[in-house]
Amino acid sequence: MNRADFIIYWGGNPADCHPRHFTKYTLTPKGKHVPMGRKGRTMVLVDVRETPSVRAADIFLQVRPGKDFEVITTLRALVKNQPVDQARVAETGLTLAQLQDLVGRMKNARFGVIFFGMGLSMTRGKHMNSAAVLALVAELNAFTKFVCMPMRGHGNVTGADVVMRWTTGFPFGVNLCRGYPRFNPGEFSTVDLLVRGDNDAALILGADPGATMPQPAIDHLARIPTIVLDPKVTRTSRLARVHITTAAMGISAPGTVYRMDEIPLPLRPILQSPYPTDEVVIRRIHEQVKAKPAWLPASFKKVPCA
């Protein structure tokens, strides 16, 4: 807000999904180094279809669905003045002139930002698309200042990344089975684990995978003992063995939440819940587990010391 004069939204529709993003954080506020506010900024929207966010954009680039990775790769080539194949550019739904114009604007920006949404990170290419954006932004820093940020959906999903980072060293999908953290998305990420049927119990905290995940993952959650902590009885609660109702974060549960730019903010709950908070319930479960004898594998044999 204080610095960016060139803003790209890629694969997202903030006008509908993050309604105050433009007015509170990115476009309209007058910033320390962008005193003109909206007039001092250029906004480019990249998406596969026209959404209500188009009205807020200066330039709208409509990419053919599933061609984001190709567009980003072409941009990376153009940034480094490498030759590109005209026919392949045409397949993306954009023209070479449009992409050259975009690269020119990126390089001439004083401070650029790319916000990328699930239209990029959850479609064909998935995490490869996100990785390509990170590479593009890293390379642009040879010319000007450029950063990127994912548009986060859930309230404290950024907090989950931050807390897991400082406790285990990794942001998500952390396996502690061996007593030390291991990180391997695709192997230890939830959908993959559940679809393969690797887990033999699940503790679901403030999420409703029963309504959102692929059917094979839901089927596995119904097979194993699933425990749900949620302010409401959800679809997942109905297939779970145990459900515990908890106070809603920010409404009746106090605490800290991270904004998507990793700024921690305190909550000011207005209501008093009749239910305990998630933190209290998790700690109580932990106490109960702790009271049991330490777990050792069935095949464990004590090796005598020489």
Partner: peptide, 29 residues
């Protein structure tokens, strides 16, 4: 799994519990 609609204090407790039970901890990310 989940952790996206609970506070950081609860997330911290969840990671500690995951370590105690030798499990996988993962979020919507």
């Amino acid at each position: 799994y989940g952790l996206s609609n609970i506070t950081c204090e609860a997330q911290r407790a969840a990671v500690a519990l995951a370590e105690r039970i030798g499990g996988v901890v993962d979020s919507h990310t």
